[in-house]
Amino acid sequence: MLSRHETRERLRPYRAVLASRARSQRAYRTSFALDLASSTLVGLVELAEVWVLFSNVTALGGMRFNQILLVFGLADLSFSLADLSFGHLDTLPDFLRAGTLDAFYLRPQPILLQLITSDISLRRLARAAVGAAALGIGLVTARVTWGPGTVILLPLALVSGYGTFAALFVWAAGLQFFLLDGAEMTNAFVYGGRYAATQPASVWSRPLKLVFGFFFPMAFTAYLPAVTMLGLPGPDWLPTWLGWCAPAAAVWSWLMGLLCWRWGLRHYQGGGG
């Protein structure tokens, strides 16, 4: 076990970089305020999209509007927090083109950890706030069956969702080593994944269930925990109890993400080891 002092020392390099990034973002106040405002607006537009849909139908995939709010809130809150701390991994192609990734090799910390802690996007806090508000309203109005299970499942779902989305960014970054100009393609999966996560998986066709239900386990970040909390019957292939498997989905995503990263890094160095 590491002592408290050793842990502090181990974390010091990361804290030093992150603190400088946060300071530099807040230093330009007007720009930061504009960033926050535009980020809030994007979050609200996405929420409005769900609301517009439900002004035309009363239920979608067996869920009412306030139940969907629960799904949207869970997915958006955990995605925004993952985006805040991992989203800048999609700038890896810039590092690769400019050759600046080499500087990371000259420092005695793991490359991936250095890259993750090389930046932080505080403006995403605004989107997280929109997600948190939707989640709060959903929890109050969607008749969640409260009990010890729900109290445990809610934070478990949020933490697992955060982990799953964070891993998705690592996964995408690993592929950048091969694609170079492929940020567009991997973003389609990352942001498409976020979009899929805010939807009720019950409306998906079977191939979609395979891709976004299990391979990229987006249904585990919000829809399945919501179904479990609401005590709804799950659709084909996605039984109600699967909501409890959200941590397993996060572990799977990290395994695949780290494998992809390792594979990419080896490719960058020229194969072998």
């Binding site: 400019a98 050759g99 600046t100 080499d102 090799y105 000259l106 005695p108 910390q109 793991p110």
Partner: peptide
């Protein structure tokens, strides 16, 4: 690589550290 990083200092003229 990580142990070596503690013992080597490199200046890449074209790329800032």
């Amino acid at each position: 690589q990580r142990r070596l990083a503690r013992q080597v200092g490199v200046v890449f003229g074209q790329r800032s550290q």
